[in-house]
Amino acid sequence: MKTNTLLALLITLAAGSSCTNPTSSYTVTGSIPDTTFNGTTIYIHNRDDNRIMDSTTIENGSFSFIGKIDTAVLCFTQIGREYYTNFMLENGTIKLNMEKPNTPSGTPLNEIFTSYIQAEDSLNNIYQSKAEEIKKQTTDQTEARELFKNYYITEWKPAYIAMLTGFVNKNQDNYMGAFALQSLANFMEPEELEPVIAKSSTFIQSRNVIQRLTQRLESLKKTAEGQPFTDFTVEMENGEKVSLSDYVGKGKYTLVDFWASWCGPCRAETPVLAEVYNQYKDKGFEVVGVATWDKPEDTKKAIEELKITWPQILNAQNIPSDLYGFNGIPHIILFGPDGTIVARNLRGEELKTKVKEVMQ
Rank of each mutant, 00 (worst) to 15 (best):
E191H: 11
A178E: 04
P296G: 02
E189L: 15
I44K: 05
A144Q: 11
P108G: 06
V355I: 15
V355N: 01
E350T: 14
T20A: 13
Y152N: 12
E240L: 09
N208T: 13
A15Q: 13
K300A: 12
D282T: 10
E192P: 12
D231I: 05
I79S: 01
T270A: 11
L323T: 04
G348W: 06
N102T: 10
A268C: 07
E191Y: 11
N60F: 03
I32M: 08
I319E: 01
T56W: 07
T93P: 00
K252P: 01
Y26V: 10
V28P: 07
S17K: 15
K301Q: 13
N102S: 11
K135Y: 03
K95P: 02
L346T: 05
L147N: 06
W310K: 01
R267I: 09
S62Y: 09
Y152P: 05
T142D: 11
S243C: 09
T103G: 07
E133Y: 10
E357G: 02
N238R: 10
F258C: 03
A291N: 03
W156M: 04
L334E: 01
E349T: 14
T309F: 06
N125M: 12
I308L: 11
P101C: 07
K252E: 11
E240C: 05
C19K: 14
V272F: 04
I42E: 00
G251H: 04
L244P: 09
V276W: 02
T40C: 10
N150R: 14
S17W: 04
Q172N: 09
I69D: 01
W310G: 00
P271A: 03
S219R: 08
D121Y: 12
D257F: 01
I52A: 11
Y152F: 13
M53V: 15
S105Y: 07
T71K: 13
